[in-house]
């Protein structure tokens, strides 16, 4: 068509400039603080794993779109970068790189592209990959390097240690009281938990860094407050009930909020647009479901950590939630 013809189109004729790209790259920026804290505590391996994960996610997406689906590759929209980052954030920093590549394949190839690509996947790709790796390679996936500030870092000996949730699970199983465990040497204090000096998947350790990212996303209107608040609040209340009833067997609710993948899950994984409900009411239900399921798994399940599973389970309910929880109508009659 010639350039100087008038355009005819339906209204509206203006757009607010929001785009998939802008949303995705905002999320990438929001993940940077957590990334920097991880580099601080776990050193170079963090950069290496992240690079491999992101690169292989992009590569798999490109190859699948180009050669299997035969569509125009859309790697520049940044969604594969996010999947890569989140996958990396959900593994220990000493993981074999081949496993990272395998995880990237599961995330992009199976969890995303097999469902029809961006926007059509039922489950969060990074979480599917993480759970796949966790079940298939439980030893490698639960050997956590100790968080050591970068100036104490020695290449020669990587010391491994358990995560706070692991200590808790193991200790309670052996009949120790929670207060005893909290005082144990391996357990970090609350301040350390807040800034992230503890064992765990390397992106999930620092609550502060993740919250900074989440506030950025809220400010950019990429996410809304509903899911994170519902997730954290329901987990807090639910675990708080157990703690009030029996504080010797159950940890404090703030311990649960600060440890494991709770913050990362609530702010970045559960809020994934594609796999979360559409309406505000639906989001609240989804967030509460995630929070309660996480605590149930943490307290009564075989795994010390429950965020991944709870989000994946709730992902499966999203179509149902979308059906059952409609947005508030202008008029009820």
């Amino acid at each position: 068509m010639s350039e100087n013809l008038l355009q005819v189109s339906g209204a509206p004729h203006v757009h607010n400039g929001e785009s998939t790209k802008r949303i995705m790259w905002s999320v990438v920026i929001a993940l940077l603080p957590a990334f920097m804290v991880s580099v601080f505590y776990f050193g170079l391996p963090v950069i290496l794993i992240t690079a491999v994960s992101v690169a292989s996610c992009i590569l798999f997406e490109y190859l699948i779109q180009k050669f299997i689906l035969k569509t125009k590759p859309t790697i520049d929209d940044g969604s594969a970068v996010i999947t890569g980052l989140l996958l990396a954030f959900n593994v220990p920093s000493n993981l074999n790189l081949l496993l990272v590549v395998l995880g990237a394949f599961v995330a992009i190839g199976i969890a995303k592209m097999a469902f029809g690509g961006l926007g059509n996947n039922l489950f969060n790709p990074a979480l599917v990959a993480r759970v796949f790796l966790l079940i298939s390679f439980p030893v490698q996936m639960t050997t956590w390097p100790k968080a050591t500030p970068i100036w104490n870092f020695g290449f020669a000996d990587i010391v491994t240690g358990p995560t706070p949730l692991g200590i808790l699970k193991e200790g309670v199983k052996n009949g120790d009281a929670v207060s005893q465990l909290m005082g144990s040497e391996a357990m970090p204090d609350y301040l350390q938990m807040l800034v992230g000096q503890m064992g765990g998947s390397f992106g999930e350790i620092s609550a502060v860094a993740i919250l900074i990212g989440a506030i950025f996303l809220l400010f950019r209107k990429v996410i809304t407050w509903h899911i994170p608040v519902a997730f954290l609040l329901s987990a807090f209340v639910f675990s708080g009930i157990f703690w009030l009833v029996d504080p010797t067997h159950y940890a404090t609710p703030w311990f649960h909020l600060l440890t494991g993948g709770m913050m990362l899950g609530a702010c970045f994984m559960a809020t994934d647009m594609v796999t979360s409900p559409m309406s505000a009411r639906g989001m609240l239900v989804f967030g509460c479901g995630c929070g309660i399921l996480t605590i149930i798994i943490r307290l009564f399940g075989a795994y010390p950590e429950g965020v991944s599973f709870s989000i994946l389970i709730m992902n499966a309910f999203v179509p149902l939630i979308n059906k059952g929880f409609k947005p508030q109508p202008y008029s009820k009659i």
């Binding site: 068509m1 010639s2 013809l5 008038l6 355009q7 005819v8 189109s9 339906g10």
Partner: peptide, 14 residues
């Protein structure tokens, strides 16, 4: 020949 350029949903109905 086209006198204007249609730039909307590809639907004859619309």
């Amino acid at each position: 020949p086209a006198k204007v350029n249609y730039d909307s949903m590809p639907s004859c109905f619309f």
